[in-house]
Write a protein that binds this DNA or RNA. Structure first.
Lengths: 188, 188
DNA sequence: CGCGCGATTGAGTAATTTCAAATCTAGTGG
DNA sequence: CCACTAGATTTGAAATTACTCAATCGCGCG
């Protein structure tokens, strides 16, 4: 089998087989069924997850009960409540499976130990985090300076698979508009 | 003198004097005057900057000529066009001094070399980037789920100094509302 | 004193939201 | 194969919100 996890890491650093075994040994497979919750608001969070198969959403529910999507995670994405994980505070978002999912679970201590023991992995996580930071800067800029239609088209272009797999309502709440407005965008 | 740069790093990793000298030797002091441009859209970007004194804005101008603030940088903040720096593509934002500024300038190769030579510094940059990522996630969530008034009050609470130092117009374009709307928020 | 910049206010306009209803679609069981 | 149902999407109309543009205000500085 082609190991998408190893490939994912080796896009950034090359590993010997024994290094890879060392890395892999810290990840624990985990499955979760469609609609089930991986992280619930208020929970303490100890792990982050690499998605092998399936699709999840991380979202926050506001006072009025409306949901706002912080991120989706398809195959080869990482997901968690990174703030809760880093600060060891209760989760402020929910993470829920949109399909049956298979993940690799990495405990925070495992990540830190990997980074300590394998300089390459500290490099890997630094780069990965930097790319995430850059992507979020782009998202902030697009929230500030683009119309909903432009944001929609950009997302469609960047992640066309997403539109086959998640309901439009969720796309709307990722883009920051109501589902009715999103629907009307397609027409014009 | 109290070295705010060393303190800044030692909030995350402790360094021996000689390690600190090694780190410090890669940073080149740079001054820039109020209203002058550090990075101009279209430039190639080779450096990132640690602000010792002063205040800058990173912003994008849209097709209609309106500015949108991606970030401010006060003392002890880092600023650059991180996307342009990481990808070695032309800058898509401008970085301009709002006051006379003193910075420490770090070339990308110097950062990578520091990370290679000093595992502690790779750890430092990984953590720093993670905190930046988390802060941006919070900003995305507040853009999606909070009213302009709530975002204003959060910013005021987190960075009260900012309001003494930058015009309200810029605060408005950071929050994603017109300056008139921001002005009316204070009243209600 | 008067100039200029930033902030505020008012009025009209444009865009988005809300709420309700209608339509479409995929999956289920007869 | 077809009818039925639940969920998702679309459409319509009214209400709300934010925007634009223009005018005014307030303050610091020469």
């Amino acid at each position: 089998m082609t190991d998408i996890f190893r490939q994912h890491i080796e896009q950034i650093v090359t590993l010997t087989d024994s290094e890879y075994e060392q890395v892999r040994s810290h990840f624990i497979p985990k499955k979760i069924r469609k609609f089930h919750t991986l992280i619930r608001e208020g929970d303490l969070v100890f792990d982050e997850y690499f998605v092998m198969k399936g699709c999840l959403k991380a979202y926050k529910t506001d006072e009025e009960g409306k949901d706002h999507i912080l991120q989706f995670a398809l195959e080869e994405w990482w997901i968690s409540d990174f703030k809760a994980l880093a600060m060891q505070t209760p989760a402020t978002i929910n993470v829920v499976a949109l399909e049956n999912c298979e993940m690799l679970c990495l405990a925070m201590e495992s990540r830190e130990r990997l980074c300590r023991d394998l300089h390459k992995m500290e490099y890997f996580f630094r780069k990965k985090t930097l790319f995430g930071y850059i992507a979020l800067q782009q998202r902030v800029l697009s929230l500030l300076s683009s119309t909903a239609k432009e944001r929609y088209e950009l997302l469609l272009q960047q992640y066309p698979q997403l539109f086959q797999r998640v309901p439009k309502t969720l796309i709307a709440s990722y883009l920051g508009v109501s589902r009715e407005t999103l629907s009307r965008l397609n027409k014009s």
